[in-house]
């Protein structure tokens, strides 16, 4: 199951990278055959350590939350973050008050924590510095709350409920 998923994924990546569909049928058959061979090689070497619970890949509601809900929210947050950065950089007095705060997450899986850290980095004014088990250390360009509970409410809550639905 796991090996089959890895084979499909690396085959899709190969097809996107080489793009043999420029001519009509028959497509560039040689390129596709080389892709099959290389995907088999990758599957033999890395098959064991691909995904912990591959059954998650076959649940369609995860893709619904990922594409239709997470991506628009994330794009909106990115644009807000950039307008915020532009304001702080251009303003002559530089309204910054930096500090490192500690927040707690409820996510368990490694990929979930990674995507949470990346999302926090792209939201306005925050940057993940380190992850230790369930605590994240976050550099905040303007500190609104120093204690753990309020910082968690302000920073993590925007994405956590969504990532639990996608990755847990």
């Amino acid at each position: 199951m796991r090996r089959f998923l890895l084979f499909i994924d690396s085959m899709i990546l190969w097809l996107l990278l080489t793009w043999p569909f420029n001519q009509l049928w028959p497509y560039n058959i040689q390129s596709i055959l080389v892709g099959v061979a290389i995907s088999l090689l990758v599957t033999l070497i890395f098959g064991k350590r691909f995904s912990q619970r591959p059954i998650k890949w076959f649940e369609p509601q995860r893709y619904f939350w990922l594409i239709l809900v997470y991506m628009p929210i994330f794009t909106l947050q990115c644009i807000k973050a950039n307008v915020d950065v532009a304001y702080r950089v251009i303003h002559p007095k530089m309204p910054i008050k930096p500090g490192i705060v500690k927040v707690k997450t409820r996510l368990k899986s490694k990929i979930g924590r990674t995507v949470l850290a990346n999302s926090i980095t792209m939201t306005p004014g925050t940057l993940t510095v380190d992850i230790q088990d369930e605590y994240l250390y976050i550099h905040w360009i303007k500190v609104y709350a120093e204690d753990e509970e309020n910082a968690t409410r302000l920073i993590v809550k925007k994405f956590e409920w969504l990532l639990i639905k996608i990755f847990e």
Partner: peptide
């Protein structure tokens, strides 16, 4: 956005602030 990110790299005072402005601006 690239311009604001690089400008923040020059103007902000320490490593972490520069990292923050530059990463956000230049990535987006």
């Amino acid at each position: 956005f690239d311009f604001f990110g690089s400008f923040g790299l020059i103007r902000l005072p320490d490593v972490y602030n520069r990292l923050q402005a530059a990463t956000k601006g230049v990535t987006v």
